[in-house]
């Protein structure tokens, strides 16, 4: 075998490591290292992307094969039914904040059906995210108690800045709901004027503002997360 005696030094370096990852020849441990670096190191991620682009024409050789319908059915269950529930259940800390109110509400619901027709107070959730931003909040609106609970998932505010929460309803100008208190879980009381318009389909948005909030009454900084309220 003459191949082992190829001339020249052994090639190496990040670019080749990226190439080997894309080609698919690395073992499990090496692939784990590469995939961590893709997440943590933008320069390395770009090298990987460039190799994906170079080699991707070979993917034309993969024949298209229709998957069985059960795959789609399982995905629908997983993404659109099961996940929101497990997502909420997994943020138990968030629910704990609303627990006292819920228990009180439950007691009333049990005791009062004889007096009032049972009216389910709307409970709406919104997942707040935005492209190009790592700020994420999960918001739950408890109409019965005029409260909004915010679970801070990720993304820090810059020094000397505050996150301000806005409601956008239809084509109307954003209405401030106040500065979001720092911390993992934040509770905000909703002003009656805002509550009137806060319903399913309304958009909640978070903007980055000077400390103390927008000086103009309208968002002045970038919107770092937004999402519409959905009924649960």
């Amino acid at each position: 075998m003459t191949l082992a005696q190829d001339d020249g030094p052994e090639p190496g370096g990040d670019d080749l490591f990226a190439a080997e990852y894309v080609l698919g020849v690395l073992d499990a441990d090496e692939r784990e290292i590469a995939s961590r670096r893709i997440d943590a190191d933008a320069t390395f991620a770009r090298l990987v992307d460039a190799w994906e682009a170079r080699l991707s024409p070979m993917a034309a050789a993969y024949p298209e094969t229709e998957p069985p319908i059960r795959v789609k059915e399982a995905l629908d269950r997983r993404l659109f039914v099961a996940e929101p529930r497990s997502g909420l259940w997994s943020s138990l800390a968030f629910w704990r904040g609303l627990a006292a109110a819920s228990v009180a509400a439950l007691a009333i619901t049990i005791a009062v059906p004889y007096l009032n027709p049972p009216v389910e107070p709307p409970r709406l959730v919104a997942s707040l995210t935005a492209d190009g931003s790592d700020v994420r909040y999960l918001a739950v609106y408890d109409a019965a108690h005029r409260k909004i609970g915010l679970s801070h998932v990720s993304g820090e505010r810059a020094a000397g800045k505050d996150f301000e929460l806005w409601m956008i309803e239809g084509k109307n100008a954003p209405v401030s709901m106040g500065i979001i208190p720092a911390g993992q879980i934040a509770h905000m009381t909703i002003a009656p004027a805002v509550q009137e318009k806060l319903a399913q389909g309304a958009v909640l948005a978070v903007s980055l503002e000077p400390a103390g909030g927008s000086p103009t009454g309208q968002p002045t900084g970038p919107v770092v997360a937004a999402g519409d309220l959905k009924s649960i």
Partner: peptide, 8 residues
């Protein structure tokens, strides 16, 4: 070595 050289 083969594959690295081939990639380059």
């Amino acid at each position: 070595t083969w594959l690295r050289r081939s990639l380059l």
